[in-house]
Design a protein around this nucleic acid. Structure first.
Lengths: 174, 174
DNA sequence: TATTGTTATACTCTATAACTATA
DNA sequence: TATAGTTATAGAGTATAACAATA
């Protein structure tokens, strides 16, 4: 259990950057998704290194925060928010529930639903995670002026906000 | 569709929110990796829908292009460039080779190495893929002015180019 | 008939470790 | 001793499909 598993994107961090190995990027240089992916990998790796002790993946963390922020939300609410499948969300919620970080409560209004709530234990975990993450975040944010950062975020939102979804199959980031 | 029965903290979806169905993002709103990931997912999904017929994942495509652009490169060269493990790269290269899109040739200089080359068949595939991708790319790029696009790319590079790698120790991640 | 949750299953991607053959 | 490639294996994440209870 001391093995390092990277569920999403990980690669050994011997590399410096994409062009230092003498490999020319060519037309790849102009591909938005390419830069997006490498940025994602870089952030993910730093996240992993920073949060190693907590065993909380970015998605789990996101779900935890969303439940904290939206008590009573359903699994499907959260899944939609994160563009995830309901079955995948099920597994994720199961893990958080097994850690007693959240709990399911049957809805009184709609008996098909389970409402999700963060537990006190979950709040402790979330706070711990947030503290660690703030250092991680700072490492990247300090590379930008406040204006640049605001622009970057708004550009990213522009990419994913409005959508004329063709069809969907999932996987992320690769 | 998704009705959200939150007992106390329900708020109608603000247009600012990246997400759907009235779920509040809360502190997640300020997390760079969160926006990065959603942008990545959006681009990936569009890529999938666009390139459905070709059965060429973004990574496979990238490897194909890099080999085309850098004839004779080794697997490790490519792997480093894309931040991938050499074993993972192996599997990827195997697939491209099985499709006769690339080929391995033993290096005359260093007999440990296999030099990678794109085949004529590979060039055809790459060109077909590039044609499809240009439509996909345009769908996102048209949301930006030339200046904005240049800024976005340079910001993304700023995220992954220089690396402050905080000692990636082995530990369990999930 | 549609939706929420659920389970089971299979598939894909990736890392780890061990090995070989070279250097 | 280190490096490039290779193989086998195991783990995580995800989607798909089916099902039950409820709307």
């Amino acid at each position: 259990m001391t093995t390092f598993h990277a569920p999403e994107e990980y690669s050994p961090s011997s590399a410096l950057n994409a062009s230092t190995s003498g490999v020319k990027l060519g037309s790849l240089q102009e591909i938005l998704g390419f830069h997006l992916r490498l940025a994602n990998v870089a952030v993910f790796q730093d996240y992993q290194a920073t949060m190693a002790g907590l065993a909380l993946t970015p998605k789990q963390f996101a779900v935890l925060e969303l439940i904290e922020e939206n008590p009573g939300a359903s699994q499907i609410d959260i899944a939609n928010c994160l563009r995830m499948d309901k079955a995948s969300m099920m597994a994720l919620v199961n893990k958080l529930e097994a850690r007693h970080a959240i709990e399911r409560r049957p809805s009184a209004v709609d008996r098909r639903r389970q409402e999700l709530f963060i537990t006190e234990e979950g709040v402790v975990l979330a706070n711990k995670a947030k503290t660690l993450r703030s250092a991680h975040e700072a490492r990247f944010k300090e590379r930008f002026s406040p204006e640049e950062l605001a622009d970057l975020v708004s550009y990213l939102q522009r990419i994913y906000a409005t959508r004329t979804t063709p069809t969907l199959q999932e996987d992320d980031a690769d």
